[in-house]
């Protein structure tokens, strides 16, 4: 649980910013090796069942953030409960309920930490975290990978009851070629693995 302090002196703000920026610079020993200098295109989809209602969406995000979430895919696991400055570099914002096509650095082990949904910082703001903690093994020759549809089933408290993996490769491939503009790049299916 998090304690938020309502009032801070300017000096404290400065100290906190310094502290946060320092923690953001720490290099985790459990990071993955970069394969070359390239990028890999990741195709997948995040579904939430039941989908958020209009009222819930209003409470979670606003403007362009509505019905979108930050998918954390990087060289390391990121704790979605801790808001570290610079953590955003490990994530890419995607539309929920649609196939996404995003580019990530080509790490040997692409760590999926989950999805963070929520942008508001008011006392009545909602934040939903979809769990991850799986790894996708990337090959040096991979240009594009398909990670499937991850369907998160939630209860009324936004607790995640279970996660389903659904293979929608054909639909995802169409979306990939549409965005990519060519139909030559191979989209390799990669299954999630438990971290060692």
């Amino acid at each position: 649980m998090t304690r938020l302090i309502g009032k801070s002196a300017p000096m404290h703000v400065g100290a906190m910013l310094l502290a946060l920026s320092l923690t953001g610079c720490q290099h985790s020993p459990e990071t993955s090796r970069l394969l070359g200098d390239g990028e890999v295109t990741v195709v997948g989809r995040i579904d939430i069942v039941p989908p958020f209602t209009e009222q819930e969406l209003k409470a979670i995000g606003n403007g362009r953030a509505i019905n979108r979430g930050s998918v954390f895919l990087s060289d390391r696991f990121v704790d979605l409960n801790i808001h570290k400055i610079g953590a955003g570099r490990h994530a890419e914002v995607v539309d929920l309920g649609k196939h996404f096509v995003i580019k990530r650095k080509q790490f040997e082990n692409l760590h999926y930490s989950g999805v963070f949904i929520g942008t508001k910082t008011t006392p009545y703001s909602e934040q939903v975290r979809l769990p991850g903690k799986v790894v996708y093994k990337i090959r040096p020759e991979d240009k594009a990978i398909y990670i499937g549809t991850l369907r998160y089933h939630r209860d009324e408290y936004n607790g995640i009851k279970n996660v389903e993996y659904i293979d929608e490769y054909d639909d995802a491939l169409k979306q990939f070629y549409k965005i990519q503009g060519d139909s030559k790049t191979q989209l390799r299916k990669v299954l999630p693995e438990r971290p060692k």
């Binding site: 649980m1 998090t2 304690r3 938020l4 302090i5 309502g6 009032k7 006392p123 009545y124 909602e126 934040q127 939903v128 975290r129 209860d155 009324e156 408290y157 936004n158 607790g159 995640i160």
Partner: peptide
């Protein structure tokens, strides 16, 4: 209906400060 406690707040008059304690937003 089904309800979920979302936060508690404290007030400290010395220092004129309000503290907000947010409870986990997911799960019952």
């Amino acid at each position: 209906g089904s309800y979920k406690f979302t936060s508690f707040s404290n007030f400290k008059s010395f220092g004129n400060t309000q503290y907000m304690f947010n409870l986990p937003s997911q799960g019952r």
